[in-house]
Design a protein around this nucleic acid. Sequence first.
DNA 1: TTTCTAAATCGGTTTTATCGATTGATTATA
DNA 2: TATAATCAATCGATAAAACCGATTTAGAAA
Lengths: 291, 291
Amino acid sequence: MELRQLKYFLKAKELLNFTEAASALFISQSTLSQQIKQLEDELQVPLFNRIGKRITLTEAGDLFAVYAQQSINKASDGLQLLKDLNKLETGKVAIGVTYALRHVVTKALILFSSEYPKIQFEIIFGTSQELIHKLNHFQLDVILTFEEIASEAHFKYLELFTSPMALVTSSETALKNKKTISLEEISTLPLAMPAGGFSTTQFISKAFEKSNLHPNVTIEINDIPTLLELIKTGKWHTILTKTTIENENDLYAIPISGKNMTRTAMLISLKEVYEKKAVKAFLKIMVENLK
Amino acid sequence: MELRQLKYFLKAKELLNFTEAASALFISQSTLSQQIKQLEDELQVPLFNRIGKRITLTEAGDLFAVYAQQSINKASDGLQLLKDLNKLETGKVAIGVTYALRHVVTKALILFSSEYPKIQFEIIFGTSQELIHKLNHFQLDVILTFEEIASEAHFKYLELFTSPMALVTSSETALKNKKTISLEEISTLPLAMPAGGFSTTQFISKAFEKSNLHPNVTIEINDIPTLLELIKTGKWHTILTKTTIENENDLYAIPISGKNMTRTAMLISLKEVYEKKAVKAFLKIMVENLK
DNA sequence: TTTCTAAATCGGTTTTATCGATTGATTATA
DNA sequence: TATAATCAATCGATAAAACCGATTTAGAAA
């Protein structure tokens, strides 16, 4: 049993397709096939069912995968630890962010990189679900998003701040003098909203449902900068957390009245995984600069 | 980084002597020396101090050893788990049953679990169609039901026993002295029958049709225990396989006369899917105790 | 100094991981 | 229903690497 074989196995498990897994691993299909077979021989039990040309995990494969992953993780944690020993002169940080929290990351990024210029960053924007999936697959070190309904036991959560849900509108609009606005008022306005995958959209849809209101959504779009551009025309309005348009000129956020109309920004990371020094340092700078 | 190298490293760390470590690992000193060097190259940091001809651990080596050991442990935990799986000290078994064959499963379950108490069971009752659907979706390991008209190529079938279709009636009834009963006689009696989804009901409906008889069904019900309760009042009769009321007091089964009035109990599982050891052992006990 | 010992290094051998091509089988399609 | 496309397994060949014995290097002991 070698880490190489465990890595191959997990990729095959993930894709359930030897050909694709092999190409993702930059090896030939025959090599993957042979290495899996060799692993199975050593373990004395098949890890995959071969049903025709399709493969599925066996019970053994399913159970073993957990340990294979942990074994790999421990080894790479050890590697990471040694890199950290080099006093943050090397290392990569992968951070997932929901778009709404963009400015929180960029601000910290600017501060951090002037202090530790050699650290590499990968900033991934995506929906909460996408980011959580990537976190679970060890593709991200930490994610920054709003609270989820279901908290999971293998995650570590850190609350950052709360931000009200708000109607976002252009400065041209007559609405701009209002201090708050109700869902009922909003339901009369033409709305352009983030697409269904965005947690903000899901959050606000539920709120409308509860109030038996039907919002007038004429546009759904999965790119926030484009959405904001449309809002700036004054022809549509949208609903976002207030923090989303921080640092945006020409846009106003009018908090929505009513209970539970705030969201909590959180840092989510995996428990029991070695936390990189660079990540720790970056998050420290980020939290310190939340105002 | 490979588990082999981690193992070498830990042994060298333990003995702090490459020559002895090599011989403990049944490899040559030169091989050990090379492999350690290769690991150090990959980690970009020395794990040992070479003070003259003596070696000591570096800080990096000391810190890294923890993770190296954990990585190896996780891999060997996984291996141990698979061994346990083979010894039936772990594992899950999911079995689908039609209600008529209930007692076959419960009897085997009691015997099996006293021998292998650590195996978890999921017993799913349902109609044949429901169970076959679940089997096809890998939600069940095996199902126990009566023969289907259409046998499918990707299933494995094992015949268990045959049981006659029978009129089920309460002990109070005058019918109880009859040895057999015809469909024609039955068609005059008030019947409470399992609902249309049950294969027994489908089976018996076809038999009535063929004989141009119209049964007097006054109740249809999709729960067999409730059905049996009604039968015990003596106000209705029903038609089931004889085996269904095995171990039921106060109920009599009068076999129905005529050809093809028996049903065959079968085990159905998926071909070309790894059969869990626990499933195999359970079925063995079940088949051995069929009377 | 000499001797001894242990790690590093060198050159050669064996093992094995890998590849491309092919096969056999299943699924998709026309 | 025949045909094409797809996928895992297998085969033979090759490149990579793990490994060994012999030798070198250098510190420690005599």
